[in-house]
Design a protein around this nucleic acid. Structure first.
Lengths: 219, 219
DNA sequence: ATTACTACACTTCGAGTAT
DNA sequence: TATACTCGAAGTGTAGTAA
C-alpha cells in the first residue's frame, strides 16, 4: 500500500483540518485491502508522525499532522510542476448540437472584431459544442473557468446587455481555435464551446457524436 | 517503493512528453533503492502498461504511457482538491508606501460603488501596499493573478480609460479587505495592493516596514 | 559500461482469532 | 460492534553474477 493513498483517504474526509472518525474495516474495503492491514498501517503512520489518533467508543479519531500534510504537499508540488511545465490542458469529448446562440453571438461585429484583435483570427459565425464525457475532462474545464484567459468585454445595445466572454486559444484535432467561457453561459461544466477561424464541422468532417480532442495551451 | 515516486522521477525528466534516457543505477541511487529493484520495478510498470521502454545501447528510453499519465493526474487531482478545498492563500510581507494612485482610484465613484455592490463594503479611499519578501509569497500572488476573482469593470471618462480591476476578498491581520489586481498595474508580482472598508494603517497601527499577513479565501 | 536473472532476507499481506 | 495480535503466504529488498 502506498502511504499516499492512506493519507489521501483521510484528507478527502477532511483530516487535514480536524480529527475525523474512521474505522479500519471501512477504510480497508474502500482502499481494497484488509482491515488488518489498515490497522497495521495506521499504527505505522502514527509512529512515523504522519497522523495522530485518539480512540473513540467504536471508532478512531484520526488527524493528519503537519508532517503528514507536508508529505502530501511535496507530492502535490512535484505533480503540479510536472504537469504545469508541459502547460497543456487536454480534454476529450463528443460533438453535440448547440442552441444556435453561438452562431448569433459570433456574428455580432462587437464580438468578432474584438476576437480578431485579441486572438488574431476572425471567428467563423458559429460555435462547435463538445460534451465532455469524463469527470476528469469536466475538471479540466473547471480549471479553465478559474483562469483569466483572454477577455472579450461585453457591451450594451438597445437596452440589452451582451456579457463578456473569456477565451483560451486551443487546438482542436490540430486546427486552430479557442475555447469560449461566457460570463453567463447556458451550459454547465460538461459542455465546451469552441470557436475557430474555420467552420470546424466542415473542416474536420464532424458529425454529432464524433470524438474530438481539444488542447489548450496555458501559461 | 511507491510507484508514484517512480513515475515522478520519470515525469520530472520529461517522460510524459517524450522518451527519456535513464539508467537503472542512477534512478536507484536517486530514489534510494538498488539498481536491481529499479530494474524489477520498471519491468513491472511496463507490464502494467504505465510506461513503455526501448533499449538503447547503454541505457533505456522510457516514456510514460497515457495509462501512467492518467494515474499521475488522478493523484494530482485528489491532492489539489484536498488542498484547494481548505482554500486559503496566505502571504506575508512588509508595509511600503504606494504612489498615492490607489488613493485616487478608490476615490472615484465608479470604482467605489461597484466595489460596494460586488464585495459588500465601501473602500476607504486609499490602498495599503505590501512588499512580498519571499519567492513563495510572489508565487502566491502569481496564482491569484491567474484566477478570475471578482471583476470590477473599467470605464471611460473624458477620453481617459480606467482599466478593470479584479478583487480577491481577504483578511489582513484579521481585518476585512480585498487584494486588488488591476488589469494594468504599476507594480509587479512583488507588491500586493489591499483595499478595506477601514483605513488599515490607522486601524492596525501600521508603519512602513511592519510585517503583515494577508489571507485570501479562494474557491 | 549496462540490464536483469537467481537466491535469500526482510516486509507486507490476509485469515483466523483474542480482546 | 470495534482494533490488533499471530502466522503462513505473497511481495519487495539487496547481493552476486550472467549476459
Amino acid at each position: 500500500m502506498e502511504i499516499l493513498n492512506l493519507l489521501l483517504y483521510l484528507g478527502k474526509r477532511g483530516a487535514i483540518a480536524k480529527p475525523v472518525t474512521i474505522t479500519t474495516s471501512k477504510m480497508g474495503s474502500k482502499l481494497g485491502i484488509s482491515q488488518q492491514s489498515i490497522s497495521r498501517w495506521l499504527i505505522t503512520l502514527e509512529k512515523d508522525g504522519m497522523i495522530s489518533r485518539e480512540k473513540g467508543i467504536r471508532s478512531y479519531f484520526v488527524q493528519i499532522t503537519p508532517v503528514g500534510k507536508k508529505y502530501m504537499q511535496e507530492k502535490r508540488n512535484e505533480l503540479n510542476e510536472i504537469f504545469e511545465r508541459s502547460g497543456k490542458i487536454v480534454m476529450r469529448g463528443k460533438v453535440v448540437s448547440g442552441m444556435l446562440d453561438g452562431k448569433y453571438y459570433m456574428s455580432l461585429k462587437k464580438y468578432s472584431e474584438k476576437i480578431k484583435s485579441r486572438l488574431g483570427f476572425k471567428p467563423y459565425p458559429g460555435t462547435l459544442n463538445i460534451r465532455l464525457d469524463t469527470i476528469d475532462d469536466s475538471q479540466c474545464k473547471k480549471k479553465l473557468c478559474a483562469m483569466k484567459g483572454t477577455e472579450i468585454p461585453g457591451f450594451r445595445r438597445g437596452g440589452r446587455t451582451f456579457g463578456s466572454v473569456r477565451c483560451f486559444p486551443c487546438r482542436i484535432s490540430g486546427v486552430k481555435g479557442a475555447v469560449l467561457i461566457p460570463e453567463r453561459s447556458h451550459y454547465g461544466l460538461e459542455v465546451l464551446e469552441i470557436i475557430s477561424p474555420f467552420n470546424l464541422r466542415q473542416r474536420l468532417k464532424l458529425s454529432n457524436g464524433d470524438d474530438v480532442k481539444v488542447k489548450v495551451i496555458v501559461g
